[in-house]
């Protein structure tokens, strides 16, 4: 571990990737909290899968391999998916999880179809479109990191400015409306940020595992605190830790993909939180139950003897 810390200083690649995965982990932790508290946990999954056809279509239409063009395609496709999810819920009697499932599978299936179709095109392999399924963190470059940090900064700014409105929106959207808060704009803002965060993360973690990265830090953080601001802060930190540790571990071994390792760490943090967190954790609850049991027994005994 110490060797790794030293490497961050000395080695360019390790430094860049660590910074990138740390920033990404923080963004995903932060925005994931919103998704979890809005009960839209699976939205991340649906959107990341929905981004796939956008990436491939962007390549087909522009024939460039530039990352930013592909990511723009991902954002557009993610947005369309998200709009469709809302429409389905509004216009039909289907529930949200059904709509999510439909969009997820249809878009992803379409994306895979496109991937197989363009196999026959010579430049496709050079665009590395396949890499978006599971990510390839090792190819993060300085520009990517700069972008990630910029988005993180922007998210923090918005959070700072509109903290109380966002908090109320999450807690009681109807009531918020009666106070004159424009819940629609805020809603769209949150969704757009989530989509952007997901798309930025696709290069590192990939389409398939993205939803875990969005949810795990937030779910873990929730266990440790009952204050919204602490939860947001903690989930950003946990996301960062997942990113950095994941990079450290995969950097020390041959043949360990960074993306999946990061996800495994994030999920492990969730498991640890579920078991060990004070108050909400399994162990804490057991201890409390035992205490209660002893207390009741004592009360019964006292009552019996008087």
């Amino acid at each position: 571990m110490l060797e790794f810390l030293e490497l961050i200083w000395s080695d360019y690649t390790v430094r860049i990737i660590t910074m990138g995965t740390a920033a990404l982990g923080a963004i995903l932790g932060l925005l994931g909290s919103f998704a979890v508290l809005r009960k839209q946990s699976l939205l991340g999954d649906a959107i990341s899968h929905a981004a796939l056809p956008g990436i491939v279509l962007a390549f087909i239409l522009t024939q460039t391999k530039t990352t930013y063009v592909l990511l723009l395609g991902a954002i557009i496709s993610g947005l369309i998916g998200s709009v469709l999810i809302n429409s389905i819920v509004k216009r039909t009697h289907l529930k949200t999880d059904t709509a999510l499932g439909i969009i997820l599978s249809v878009f992803f299936g379409f994306g895979m179809l496109l991937l197989t179709a363009i196999q026959k095109q010579p430049d496709a392999a050079q665009a590395g479109l396949d890499k978006y399924l599971f990510g390839q963190a090792a190819t993060l470059m300085l520009e990517d990191v700069k972008l990630l940090i910029a988005v993180l900064g922007l998210a923090l700014l918005i959070l700072f400015l509109f903290y109380k409105e966002l908090k109320l929106l999450l807690f009681d959207a109807d009531y918020a409306k009666t106070l004159g808060i424009n819940t629609k704009y805020l809603d769209v803002l949150i969704t757009v940020f989530i989509i952007v965060a997901i798309v930025l993360g696709l290069q590192t973690v990939g389409v398939v595992l993205m939803s875990a990265m969005l949810l795990a830090p937030a779910a873990a953080a929730r266990q440790w605190t009952n204050s919204l601001s602490t939860m947001l802060f903690l989930s950003a930190i946990l996301g960062m830790i997942s990113g950095v540790l994941g990079t450290a571990i995969s950097a020390s071994q041959d043949n360990l993909s960074t993306g999946p390792v990061i996800v495994i760490i994030a999920v492990s943090l969730v498991v640890i939180s579920f078991i060990f967190a004070p108050n909400r954790g399994l162990i804490a609850k057991r201890v409390q139950q035992r205490k209660n049991k002893k207390l009741f027994e004592k009360i019964k005994d006292d009552a019996a003897t008087t």
């Binding site: 080695d11 690649t13 390839q136 963190a137 090792a138 995969s250 950097a251 041959d254 043949n255 993909s257």
Partner: peptide, 9 residues
Amino acid sequence: TEAGVKDMR
């Protein structure tokens, strides 16, 4: 296979 951080270095 994925090019990992170790490979880059």
